[in-house]
Measured scan of single mutants.
Amino acid sequence: EIHIRTNGEEQARKVYKMLAKRNYDVKIEQHNGQWVVTAS
């Protein structure tokens, strides 16, 4: 499982799309105001 911390919604969405293209199961979560993308 991969966790990627991003500094904002826009970046989180870019990372989300990139990983989704590679057939990862991707989730975006917010932790303490930080956007974290989780891929498995």
Rank of each mutant, 00 (worst) to 15 (best):
E1V: 15
E1H: 15
E1W: 15
E1T: 14
I2M: 06
I2A: 03
I2Y: 08
H3F: 13
H3R: 14
H3P: 02
R5H: 11
T6I: 12
T6K: 03
T6M: 11
N7Q: 10
G8M: 10
G8L: 12
E9K: 09
E9R: 09
E9T: 04
E9L: 15
E9M: 09
E10M: 11
E10G: 08
E10P: 06
E10D: 09
Q11K: 06
Q11G: 05
A12H: 01
A12M: 03
R13A: 05
R13C: 15
R13D: 03
R13P: 00
R13E: 05
V15Q: 02
V15D: 01
V15R: 03
V15K: 03
Y16S: 07
K17W: 13
K17R: 12
K17M: 13
K17P: 01
M18Q: 07
M18E: 08
L19M: 06
L19R: 00
L19V: 01
A20P: 00
A20T: 09
K21H: 08
K21R: 11
R22T: 05
R22N: 07
N23T: 04
N23L: 09
N23E: 05
N23F: 15
Y24V: 06
Y24T: 04
Y24D: 03
Y24P: 04
D25W: 10
V26D: 00
V26F: 02
K27M: 06
K27E: 04
K27A: 06
K27V: 07
I28D: 00
I28W: 02
I28F: 03
E29Q: 10
E29L: 09
Q30S: 08
Q30H: 11
H31G: 04
H31Q: 11
N32Q: 08
G33R: 04
G33F: 04
G33E: 06
G33K: 05
Q34T: 11
Q34N: 07
Q34Y: 15
W35M: 01
W35A: 01
W35G: 00
W35R: 00
V36N: 03
V36G: 03
V36S: 06
V37F: 02
V37H: 01
V37R: 00
T38H: 08
T38K: 09
A39F: 14
A39Q: 03
S40W: 13
S40L: 09
S40A: 07
S40I: 12
